[in-house]
Computed example of a mutant assay.
Amino acid sequence: MAVFVGALLLFLFPLAYSPGPGNMFFAAMGARSGVAATLPANAGYHAATLVVTGLVGAGFVAVLDPASTLFLLLKTSGSIYVLWLAWKMATSGRTNAGGEDRGAGFLDGVMLLVLNPKAYVIILLMYSQFAGFAFASTAERVAVISLVFTLNNLLAFLLWTLAGDGLGRMFRNETSARRLNLFFAFMLAGVALWMLLG
């Protein structure tokens, strides 16, 4: 089991810790509102990750064919949602870790995962690469993969959120905060285009 988990973590490391929709979203929210304000969205994202990963692994959710209309619809919807988040950030005022900005909610996190077609591709790739390891049952394999994948993503997102929060603390006055918001808004817009065109 330890060898399996180690191999899975090595496989997931570049996927989980490199910039992507989730990491950029949580870094931006951390910079804007502080770590505490991102916790509901983080809980939503990772609850959805655990459920979707488990359902895909158990065969209840078919992974979409990238050439299908449904995949294109999901990709377009996800890109529009991330662009909307970028617009909200670009048009907002100064950052605020003091609590008056409620940050992102549980549903924002759920939507970020559910509308990200690349998440489904990664989940399918993960299962295809690690299907050969011996487990007592399919349920055990799905449970281990889903849990390791979710917890690893959670750690990555928390690190990106902390980095964003640290950056945001250096930009608490109105002018510099506005620039930081615009920087992260452009980053999110770039992620949205990457999701759409990738």
Rank of each mutant, 00 (worst) to 15 (best):
F4K: 05
G6N: 05
A7R: 05
A7I: 00
L8Y: 01
F11H: 14
L15M: 03
L15Q: 09
S18P: 04
P19I: 10
G22I: 00
A27I: 02
G30S: 10
G30E: 03
S33R: 11
S33Q: 13
S33H: 14
T38H: 04
N42W: 14
N42G: 11
G54F: 02
G57V: 03
G59T: 14
V61D: 01
P66W: 05
A67P: 01
T76P: 03
G78W: 00
V82L: 15
K88P: 00
R94P: 10
T95W: 06
G98T: 09
G99T: 02
R102A: 06
R102S: 02
G109V: 11
V114K: 14
L124P: 01
L125Y: 06
S128P: 02
S128L: 12
Q129L: 04
F130L: 05
S137G: 02
S137E: 02
T138C: 07
V148T: 14
L151S: 10
L155H: 12
L158M: 10
L159M: 14
A163R: 10
D165A: 15
G168F: 12
E174N: 12
S176I: 02
R179V: 01
N181G: 12
L182V: 04
M187N: 05
L193M: 13
M195L: 15
L196V: 04
